[in-house]
């Protein structure tokens, strides 16, 4: 009896622990978060009601991130999103000492040198935003609509290699989804496989 009780307790515990990284579901409200950017400015998801928000998990040393920044694909999509009025937030969830962890100055330098165009770069060294969204890879992308609902989560595109030559052959899921949203249509492919390096929590 006691043993059975203990087992139930352990199972419950395992589920609670497991849920720490549980992903949100498309169609449901995205978890609200507060994050600080490289300029020490605070961003709250709720502040962007009425606008489309794109979250991009990144780690500049990850070969898959390099694939898309090296070829200019990520920057191009950041500019397109901005032109459509969307808020693009790059998020760095690498813990101190882990690959991809940067100081605010280094992050700004990366944006400058790579000619990136995010609305802001959020620094999340404790991984709070990452865990709230269940971010697993770099890159891993999420789109949140004007009402705060998650409408897309997954990879940047459809070919899961580290080879920049594949970008032109791939379906750019995020670009397609943003265009569909802008045209007032539902997102045809709302969940795809995120691919890349693990987020270095």
């Amino acid at each position: 009896m006691l043993q059975a009780f203990f087992r139930v307790f352990l199972i419950t515990l395992a589920f609670v622990a497991g849920s720490a990284i549980a992903a949100p579901r498309v169609g449901e409200s995205a978890p609200d978060f507060t994050g600080v950017d490289t300029q020490s400015k605070t961003h709250r998801l709720a502040d962007y009601r009425g606008k489309t928000v794109v979250l991009e998990w990144t780690n500049h040393d990850c070969p898959y991130v390099r694939k898309h920044y090296g070829a200019g694909n990520m920057q191009e999509q950041q500019r397109e999103a901005a032109a459509q009025g969307a808020i693009w937030l790059s998020v760095i969830s690498s813990a101190p000492g882990q690959q991809g962890y940067v100081s605010p100055g280094e992050a700004d330098e990366l944006t400058r040198s790579r000619k990136a165009a995010p609305h802001a770069v959020l620094l999340d060294p404790e991984g709070r935003i990452g865990r709230a969204f269940g971010a697993k890879t770099t890159p891993h992308l999420y789109i949140i609509d004007e009402a705060g609902k998650l409408v897309y989560m997954g990879g940047i595109d459809s070919i899961t290699t580290a080879d920049p030559a594949d970008i032109s052959k791939a379906t750019q899921y995020v670009r397609v989804a943003l265009r569909e949203r802008a045209a007032g249509q539902p997102v045809t492919t709302p969940v795809t496989r995120p691919y890349g390096c693990s987020v270095k929590y």
Binding site: C62, P63, Y64, Q98, Q99, D163, C197, S198, K200
Partner: peptide, 12 residues
């Protein structure tokens, strides 16, 4: 062959 080899960081 193409393979990704990782410890924590990854190398294609």
């Amino acid at each position: 062959a193409e393979w990704l080899v990782c410890r924590v960081e990854c190398i294609p």
